[in-house]
Design a protein around this nucleic acid. Sequence first.
DNA 1: TATCCCATGTAAAGCGTTACATGATTAA
DNA 2: TTAATCATGTAACGCTTTACATGGGATA
Lengths: 230, 230
Amino acid sequence: MSLRYALLGLLADEAGSGYELTKRFERSLDRYAWHAKHNQVYQELNRLAADGLAEVVEEGARGRKTYAITEAGRADLRHWLLNPPRTPVVRNEFVLRLFLLFALDPKEARSVLADYAAAVQRDLDALTALVESANFDPHDGVLPDPLAFGHLAAGFGLHMLPASRDWAQWAITQIDNQAGEDAGHEGARETGTSGGDGSAEDGDATKGSGSAEDSGATKGSGAVDEAPGS
Amino acid sequence: MSLRYALLGLLADEAGSGYELTKRFERSLDRYAWHAKHNQVYQELNRLAADGLAEVVEEGARGRKTYAITEAGRADLRHWLLNPPRTPVVRNEFVLRLFLLFALDPKEARSVLADYAAAVQRDLDALTALVESANFDPHDGVLPDPLAFGHLAAGFGLHMLPASRDWAQWAITQIDNQAGEDAGHEGARETGTSGGDGSAEDGDATKGSGSAEDSGATKGSGAVDEAPGS
DNA sequence: TATCCCATGTAAAGCGTTACATGATTAA
DNA sequence: TTAATCATGTAACGCTTTACATGGGATA
């Protein structure tokens, strides 16, 4: 049902045709929130109209139909927004791939992670440029027209993209640390100084790609088998 | 096809039965990476076996079958890991809901965001506790057994959860700022909204660097309409 | 024995992807 | 005129969800 509400959300912002909504979908929701293809959009718009949640307010050239949300549609959207399920659906092929990297050897895994970090950095640069050109100072943190559509999405990217990049760089240092140890001497895993360096992560956020030298300490073997449960 | 590779990944880590793999799935992949139900797991295991990518290595009580990955399975997984598509699938019902918040009035949106931030904080606390109990110092940033399954996932949570929480708090300040401005003419807006703590300020997005170059501030009009494109 | 959790499935319906199809408008 | 892009759809197939179904093992 999520596609239905994604479309109602777009329509709540502004009426539009199937083609136009598909474009807006791609530009604003596709990356972080929800993915859908154009034919799915057309079909869902038909259903929305059949259910009285949207209506055709204009018909133009070559069959173009402009849809607008109805009052019933607004009510339905509102209800959905205010009643989140306990277990929302999450699917992210990016992240899945990254989580399974342990199945590769360290060199390959490192390369995939470096590509990922670089791609994230490019996205971040593009977003920063967009947002600056829209008269928004990312350091100040105040956007014009708060709560406008796309506003929340832009802020989301500005927060999450650096974290995502930093995670990838952190993962690379983990690999390098292990590789360094394995090269040294087999079996033994103990190196002094566990508190020595302060975080090779966060903060520094080196633009561009990872430098990832830094050596660290590895402590005894341990669990951390899984992420926290449901 | 992603479910297939999620399962191959789990099997590459360790063999297991359908029930067991379902549990591992829920604990490690479900939250950030990929969601699937138990019956889907059983069906996919059958297909995996039929395709020679996994095999039954043990049959136990009440029909229990333990599957292991085959060499063909490892090769297939490896190929998938090394050849990412240009446009991976992303679906996140959480984020979708948050992006569409503009369709609510500010008070309601604020409440949804506050609930979200609190839930994320609880997740983060749980993860931190788990990771500390597993002999990992989150400030040091060095994990035992790098690249182990779940290791990358734990690090991911440690990086992304704070960003996610900070974004929600940033969004709340945006709402409050706008509400303060609007209070000029419109009616009362100084209500003591529900359990809100009011201290939505956190150090992150507010640091440094003087304001902008500023030219023609178009407030209220549609600057920053969309997130960066595909 | 009753009850709960373990453990594995099947069937139907709904959602999403891939491939195919069609015609209009705009720019070279 | 030709090609690219705009713009809208249909059909078949595959993936996911919901609901239903079954029985073993452990414990009170």
